[in-house]
Nucleic acid binder design. Sequence first.
DNA 1: AAAAAAC
Length: 482
Amino acid sequence: MTNDNNAELTGFAALGISGQLLKATHAAGFTQPKPIQEQAIPAQIEGRDILGIAQTGSGKTAAFALPILSKIIGLGTRRRPKTARALILAPTRELAVQIEETIKVLAKGAHISTALVLGGVSRHSQVKRIAPGVDFLIATPGRLTDLVREKDLVLSETTWLVLDEADRMLDMGFINDVRRIAKATHPARQTALFSATMPDEIAELAKGLLRDPVRVEVAPQGTTATEIKQSVVFARTKQKRQVLSKMLADEAMRSVIVFARTKHGADRVTRDLERDGFEAAVIHGNKSQNARQKALNGFRDGSVRILVATDIAARGIDVPGISHVVNFDLPDEAESYVHRIGRTGRNGQDGVAVTLVDPSENAKLRQVERIIRMKLPVLADHLDQPDPQPKPRQPNGERRLEAANDHESGRQQGKPRNVNAGARKHQGNGPKGAKPAGGRPSGRQEWSEQASAPRPGGQNKPEGAKPRKFRRRPRKPAARAA
DNA sequence: AAAAAAC
């Protein structure tokens, strides 16, 4: 109702943000609300639940943080020990760190406490931090579950719950943890769920957790930003290193993420790049949290131009100004391609995505092309070259990466020979992606959820817990199916 | 088979 009198208000003020919070929002460079913010902020201020379909970079964090902040700011600093007023759940540690940073910036000048709860770093300091109670808790599911089970954290007072990148939490097998966590929060909570895609499991989860949600959708799934110029380069695995180094010699590649399929592969690419005289940082799940953060910081502040990463960075990592994404390998999940290249071309800036494709990856390439509903133009084809030829002939050599299209015009829909060859080769393959049938990850141990119903068995649950509801596991009748 | 995430 206040807005009726404020028709002249614009920007975030018109969405219901005011006072110090509005000031900090502006100071942080948020002046023009993004579509998702325009839709989600007023609804949440009214108390509505949100079902958001949006990628990172769409402005999600401010979309859920601002309305919660605007309410928490009025609540004063009296908090129950070991509780959190708002809980933000994220799939990866990096994303959690990022979210906390954004919230801190937005909350600047207000007396808002935040805490980060994630694995890989000292548990004790986190326990100490939440001991007096906090306003915002940003967490990954593993450590959060740990703290709740050990009663270092109590969620019953949590009246705001945000699930970020819910589809990814599903992929990572967190869905049951998420359910359990949600169940432990205040029953009258306000909930927002964000997901880049909406598979059935997520729709079902949303149905269980959200009450009459406002549906907010910003970019149709499966589409890639038009500002990203995509292309492929055919090169055999052995040639890729050299091809990559040649590419990186182009100084138009100011800020580059190179994606590898495996952790080992990421390390190898990094080593090769360094051997070729490039400075590169690497990030993957086998690195310590410290090393991961350092790599990311160096890349973000521009001191390192090249970041080599596994799919840990495919989603969620929000580094502005990334000029190029190079897929050294195609991802196993075709969907991942969309997320990877989405690291560039943000905020209306141009981006370039180049994918190196070995003939053995042709099947994956076709999957990707199906998902993005376009055929990727071929920027270069090194497959004709005999294997170990260090100096590739280069008629007009280094063509700008931006000139992604001319090669294609030569081929038009003439299907590059090599693609066909590969396609044939892969045709005989069995039903790919055959999922493990029964699929239910079988709920893990429950924490103290049963606390109200004292377990007759006494202490914990060693092997003795017979009534394991989900424990059937009727050994496969036909084990030969393998 | 890979990646992420709790010790």
